[in-house]
Amino acid sequence: MFPYLGLKASTDETQLEERLQHQPEVFEFYTQASDMTPDGLAHLSQMIDRVKSAGVDHVIIHHPMAFDHAHNELAVSALRNPASYQFMMGSTESIIELAKARDVQVLVHGAYNAPLSWIKAQFGSLEAGRELVFDRLDYFKALGGNHVMFENALSPLFRFGEPGFERRIMGHHYRLAYDISHAFIVLHGDNDKLVSSLARLAPQIVHYHLVDSMGQKHDSLPLGQGNIDWVRVKRVLNPNATNIYEITLDDEDNCQAMLDSHNYLKSLDSRSLLVGR
């Protein structure tokens, strides 16, 4: 039942077992480049088995966030950066095929932090960069079907919060992963616009990254420690979606901040009733 106790970890077995002791209902693997080798993919497959054997029904593989000390951007040029392009395409295709075989989900970032200046230098215009991103998202959608979802970024290449661009995204009928802190930062801490964006996209959202923020930079705070109005936000979330708590941890072997965030969100039920009177 939403919200789920959703936890994230790498494929490291110590992290994995620390999370599983709390009996999560959703588990998201955060992969890296080393997980995309033949041995790495075999290990990832084994860890998926371990999570499923613990009774976790909802398993997500987050595509590698970095390659060669840079973000693993979909909008990478095949001509200018062939190695990065080959990694981006090859790794995403590999984990989508694994997800289909193991009946789990893959989360792909539509973009990361690429600023407008970089986009124009690479592609000539924001529109040209967005067209490339849409082309690649369409390809991965066709390849993965109901096993793939796409997450919003801070970059204008693929961000939530702009009504016109959101309607364009909806026109592609993507399954969406909504990172609430990313949108809040894009919207400069405006809770009214955040709630409107969440409500507008809700029918296509299948997964949430629940994380707080002050609305100025990527800070990944526990829920209740930032400026997001969680009482209002919770009312417009899609109850059929899954979620994890994507909190920055001081110690990757201790997910207490994620557990605290889950308890905080659950505690809002009574507060919401009082506010609604």
Rank of each mutant, 00 (worst) to 15 (best):
I61A: 12
H62L: 08
H62N: 09
M65E: 11
F67C: 05
H69K: 15
H71P: 15
N72D: 04
V76F: 00
V76L: 01
S77F: 01
A78H: 11
S84Q: 12
Q86K: 11
M88N: 13
I95A: 00
L98T: 04
L98P: 08
R102I: 07
V104R: 10
Q105L: 09
Y112K: 01
N113P: 02
N113K: 15
A114H: 02
A114M: 15
P115D: 13
P115L: 02
P115H: 06
I119M: 08
A121V: 09
F123G: 03
F123A: 05
G124Q: 06
G124D: 06
G124H: 11
L126A: 13
E127G: 12
A128D: 11
A128W: 15
R130L: 02
F134N: 14
D135L: 08
R136M: 09
L137G: 12
L137W: 15
F140E: 00
K141M: 14
L143Y: 08
L143G: 10
L143V: 07
G144C: 09
N146F: 14
H147F: 15
M149I: 09
M149L: 11
E151Y: 06
A153F: 00
L154Y: 09
L154K: 02
P156A: 07
P156D: 03
L157M: 06
L157P: 07
L157Q: 06
F160E: 05
E162G: 10
P163Y: 03
P163A: 05
G164R: 10
G164A: 06
F165E: 13
F165W: 13
R167T: 06
R167P: 04
R167I: 07
R168K: 13
I169G: 05
I169Y: 04
M170A: 09
H172R: 07
H173G: 07
Y174Q: 07
Y174V: 14
Y174L: 11
R175I: 06
Y178V: 04
S181T: 12
A183I: 06
I185P: 00
I185D: 00
L187T: 06
L187Y: 04
G189Y: 03
G189E: 03
D190P: 00
D190L: 01
N191C: 08
N191D: 05
